[in-house]
């Protein structure tokens, strides 16, 4: 299996709700995926031929062909991974979706984090190239084994430190605010001082040997960014 980045993974979002497609496009692009959106089944089939997505996020209720019909036609074109979305939570719909070949099924409303986790799970099951490791210089993070190394030396991180480093490595060069890091690592429901981020960044710097703060740079008044 080839190593790669999320940017190598193409996702086609098919939903007739502009607000849904827009937020999925924004969120998935932010996570590094290459995203295209369409609003109906006919367009989905056409774009899929040309875009050749690794994964299709497909709404059930679509104008023209419905989601099940689109799914069957997509599978006739190529055996691509499909994650279905629906606002209906009838068991029959779920069963039907999975029986006609969907890899997973998500009922609205859903959390973006859950969608992201399911996207990754589907891609893993499909053995579609995912960046199992994130690297910046000689700093390497393995998502599967949750191991971090600097050069040949293994670094032992706490779970929080690992998640913090993963968030920074996933967006190399991009400044992540303290609030963003808090939300990604500690969760939306975390109530507390943002100093906790500073404390963990400080500990992380010590462990990866970044005492001169060149690897994890502080953007004053904004947040942190990782530099190669």
């Amino acid at each position: 299996m080839d190593e790669g980045t999320e940017g190598n993974v193409r996702i086609l979002v098919v939903d007739d709700e502009p607000t849904i497609t827009e937020f999925l496009e924004t969120g998935l692009s932010y996570e590094g995926y290459t995203v295209r959106t369409v609003a109906n089944g006919v367009a989905a089939l056409a774009v899929a031929r040309e875009f050749r997505p690794d994964l299709v996020i497909l709404d059930v209720m679509l104008p023209g062909y419905d989601g099940f019909e689109v799914l069957q036609r997509l599978h006739r074109q190529d055996d691509m991974a499909v994650l279905m979305l629906t606002a209906r939570d009838e068991l029959d719909d779920t069963v039907r979706g999975l029986e006609v070949g969907a890899d997973d099924y998500l009922v609205k409303p859903f959390k973006f984090k859950e969608l992201l986790a399911r996207v990754r799970a589907v891609l893993r099951r499909r053995r579609i190239a995912l960046p199992h490791t994130l690297q910046s210089g000689n700093l390497r993070l393995d998502r599967d084994t949750r191991q971090v190394s600097v050069g040949a030396e293994t670094v032992h991180l706490t779970p929080r430190e690992f998640d913090l480093l993963e968030a920074l490595l996933a967006h190399p060069g991009q400044v992540l605010t303290k609030e963003t890091l808090l939300n990604r690592v500690w969760g939306y429901d975390y109530i507390g001082d943002t100093n906790v981020v500073e404390v963990h960044i400080s500990a992380l710097r010590d462990k990866i040997g970044d005492r001169d703060r060149q690897r994890i740079q502080t953007v004053r008044g904004v947040g942190y960014a990782i530099r190669g």
């Binding site: 709700e17 607000t19 849904i20 937020f23 999925l24 924004t26 969120g27 932010y30 996570e31 606002a87 609205k108 409303p109 859903f110 959390k111 973006f112 984090k113 992540l176 605010t177 609030e179 963003t180 939300n183 990604r184 939306y188």
Partner: peptide
Amino acid sequence: TAVGGQLELLMLGA
């Protein structure tokens, strides 16, 4: 879903 998702993206810094 739309409101929740957009709010989530704002919180994630996306």
